[in-house]
């Protein structure tokens, strides 16, 4: 980025102002997260005081209460892992196949199918939950893991299809043609040529599906019960009439956040493509 170098170097004021603003930006984003992290290790007495303090004896009590106390976070964690894992694997597998198909399909209905897929993904959650609730109620799927997996697929499958079709659309045509001339069947070409070339796309899609599923609160809270509650629901459940145990909540927040922050940053290079639904690429 040589142009940037030339631009910022131009005036002394900019040389100070830009880093200062960047620091402000970083603080703005990070302070609540850091505060959550710190609070998670604070003993209750240090949390409930109105004096902001950073001197306290770090403790694992909050985490211990979360998992070993009556809070059953272990069960929630297992449910979360199960639902996120299964729905992500299904969404990415079917999404890769369908995305590839959509990227190469020659048909006048292609736009219509693409639009349908996109609008399924974009449907307001509240509008989807109500009929799903009724549907699951009559099919006996409320408060079951398969039901929750299906519910998460309702937003992750169209997302995976759409995004993978964008990623497969970028695999150079020459590579695809060469493979076919070599006598590959189309299926083999998909598996051995296109899929490996779109690997960053597959990983990005998988990570984003995982994040959406892991972080979902609306679907889980409407469609699951005591046996299938997930971690975000546990967060909701910590809010009671008698107040909130902030230490517990922050500990839970750390458990919910850390895996996603790590996974998200791991695919940062392709994040912009994933989150703009394939409309924008680049670093």
């Amino acid at each position: 980025m040589t142009t940037t170098a030339r631009h910022s170097g131009s005036r002394p004021a900019t040389r100070v102002l830009v880093p200062a603003l960047a620091l402000l930006l970083a603080l703005w984003a990070a302070v609540p997260l850091l505060w959550m992290l710190i609070t998670a290790f604070k003993p209750g007495t240090a949390i409930r005081t109105s004096d902001v303090t950073l001197s306290f004896a770090p403790t694992l009590d909050n985490f211990r209460n979360l998992f070993l106390g009556g809070n059953r976070a272990g069960t929630f964690l297992l449910n979360s892992l199960l639902v996120t894992g299964v729905s992500t694997v299904i969404a990415v597998t079917l999404g890769c196949m369908a995305g590839y198909g959509l990227a190469h399909w020659v048909s006048r209905y292609r736009t219509d199918v693409a639009f349908w897929v996109l609008s399924t993904r974009m449907a307001p959650i509240a509008a989807v939950i109500v009929p799903l609730f009724v549907m699951f109620r009559s099919a006996g799927l409320v408060d079951t893991i398969p039901g929750l997996v299906l519910a998460h697929l309702s937003f992750n499958l169209p997302f995976a299809v759409w995004l993978m079709s964008a990623f497969f659309g970028r695999v150079p045509a020459s590579v695809e043609e060469a493979a076919l001339l070599d006598g590959c069947t189309k299926w083999r070409r998909f598996l051995t040529v296109s899929l490996p070339m779109a690997r960053p796309g597959v990983v990005t899609t998988a990570v984003l599906c995982m994040v959406f599923s892991w972080n979902d609160y609306a679907f889980s809270s409407a469609l699951s019960g005591p046996d299938t509650a997930t971690l975000p629901q546990a967060a909701g459940a910590l809010v009671t009439q008698s107040g909130i145990d902030w230490g517990l909540l922050c500990a839970l927040g750390v458990v919910v956040a850390v895996p996603m922050l790590v996974a998200g940053l791991a695919v940062r290079r392709h994040l912009v493509t994933g989150l703009s639904l394939g409309a924008v690429t680049g670093e």
Partner: peptide
């Protein structure tokens, strides 16, 4: 700066 996006 991107971190908040990944929190539930």
């Amino acid at each position: 700066v991107l971190l908040p996006m990944f929190l539930a």
